[in-house]
Lab assay of single mutants.
Amino acid sequence: SKTSNTIRVFLPNKQRTVVNVRNGMSLHDCLMKALKVRG
């Protein structure tokens, strides 16, 4: 089974995003990807 960790990230202006960290990806990469999608 694939394991994925879901991390809630609290952003300024009362924004919130959820990042799924996959195996083999660093938290930083996942964060940058999530913020790019939002931006």
Rank of each mutant, 00 (worst) to 15 (best):
1 S>A: 05
18 V>D: 01
15 Q>K: 02
34 A>S: 13
7 I>T: 03
23 N>D: 12
19 V>D: 00
6 T>V: 15
33 K>I: 02
9 V>A: 12
19 V>L: 10
13 N>D: 10
21 V>A: 13
5 N>D: 10
34 A>T: 04
38 R>L: 02
16 R>G: 04
5 N>G: 05
9 V>T: 15
28 H>Q: 14
28 H>N: 09
4 S>C: 11
39 G>S: 13
19 V>F: 12
34 A>V: 03
13 N>Y: 08
10 F>L: 06
14 K>Q: 06
4 S>I: 10
9 V>K: 05
36 K>Q: 11
30 C>I: 06
12 P>S: 01
2 K>M: 11
5 N>V: 15
7 I>S: 00
29 D>E: 07
16 R>L: 06
8 R>L: 09
19 V>E: 05
10 F>Y: 08
33 K>R: 10
13 N>G: 03
5 N>H: 11
4 S>D: 15
32 M>A: 10
27 L>P: 00
21 V>I: 05
28 H>R: 12
38 R>S: 01
10 F>P: 05
2 K>T: 13
1 S>L: 09
1 S>Q: 15
29 D>V: 11
22 R>C: 09
17 T>S: 09
37 V>L: 08
29 D>Y: 10
38 R>H: 01
15 Q>R: 01
35 L>R: 00
7 I>P: 03
8 R>G: 02
31 L>R: 00
6 T>M: 11
20 N>S: 08
22 R>D: 02
29 D>G: 12
36 K>T: 06
7 I>V: 09
20 N>T: 06
6 T>S: 12
27 L>M: 13
36 K>R: 09
18 V>L: 04
5 N>K: 10
13 N>C: 06
11 L>M: 08
32 M>I: 09
20 N>K: 13
29 D>A: 09
9 V>L: 02
8 R>P: 02
23 N>C: 15
15 Q>H: 01
11 L>P: 00
26 S>I: 15
14 K>E: 08
32 M>S: 05
7 I>N: 01
38 R>Q: 05
6 T>R: 13
13 N>K: 11
14 K>N: 14
14 K>M: 10
31 L>T: 05
34 A>G: 07
23 N>I: 08
